[in-house]
Simulated assay, not measured.
Amino acid sequence: MIAYDHPDAAKLIADLQQVYVDRYGDQDITPVDPEEFAAPHGHFLVGYLDGAPVACGGWRAHDTAFDSVVPGDAELKRMYVVESARGRGLARLVLAALEEAASAAGRRRLVLETGTLQPEAIALYTRAGYRRIPNFGVYRCEPNSLCFAKELRPAPVRGAEPRAVAGADGT
């Protein structure tokens, strides 16, 4: 885990915002407070290759219902892999780590918004089991927005792993 405003995270997020400008003509309009990504109500991570930051993503908790978001959800934000590191499965690794962290924090579902001009993101999320939901928040009426959700598996309870127990007859 790394702070949302850590210099490596900030660089990747700035690169991602440029992708939004290139594809949509403007940066992401979602208001974000870096504190939202701090434990226990959020999580942000940066992936490195050869010491260089190449991937990022995070989630922030939602404990108030609005639109198609319900209490207990976590919203996925700022998923990004630099162009030179794409095609290596890093986005899948980041997504899996974020799902695991959200589940461990007691979140029941991950929700997200992506755009119609991001086919690689749409493919990633649908392959990972995300399903379309009604658009929410600032994207509720945006024609270029698509929202998705995935139910998370509950995190295993420590010490609750199944154990073999021998019967009285040794079986």
Rank of each mutant, 00 (worst) to 15 (best):
V54D: 02
R60T: 08
V54S: 02
T30Y: 12
L93I: 10
S68N: 02
E99V: 05
Y24Q: 07
G89R: 04
R108A: 13
Q27D: 09
F66P: 00
S84C: 01
V32T: 14
Y80S: 00
H43A: 03
A85K: 03
P71Y: 09
L93G: 09
V32K: 15
T114S: 11
G58A: 01
A102D: 02
V19L: 15
G42W: 11
Y20N: 10
A96T: 08
L49K: 08
R108M: 06
S84D: 04
G72W: 12
A102M: 03
Y20H: 15
V54M: 04
V81W: 03
A74F: 10
S84N: 03
P31T: 10
H62N: 10
G87Q: 06
L95M: 11
P40N: 10
P31A: 11
Y24F: 14
L95Y: 04
L93N: 08
A91M: 02
R108Y: 03
A97M: 05
A39P: 06
E83A: 15
E35D: 13
V70D: 09
V81K: 01
G106T: 06
L110Q: 04
G87A: 04
P71F: 11
V54Y: 06
K77F: 04
A39G: 02
L76Q: 08
R60V: 00
D33K: 10
E83R: 13
Y20W: 14
V82R: 12
A39Y: 11
A104C: 07
T114R: 04
L12N: 10
G87E: 01
Y24P: 00
R23S: 12
Y20P: 00
G115R: 09
R60A: 07
L98Y: 05
Q17W: 09
P71W: 09
D28R: 14
Q18P: 04
S68A: 15
D50H: 09
L95T: 02
R107G: 06
D67N: 13
R107S: 01
G106N: 09
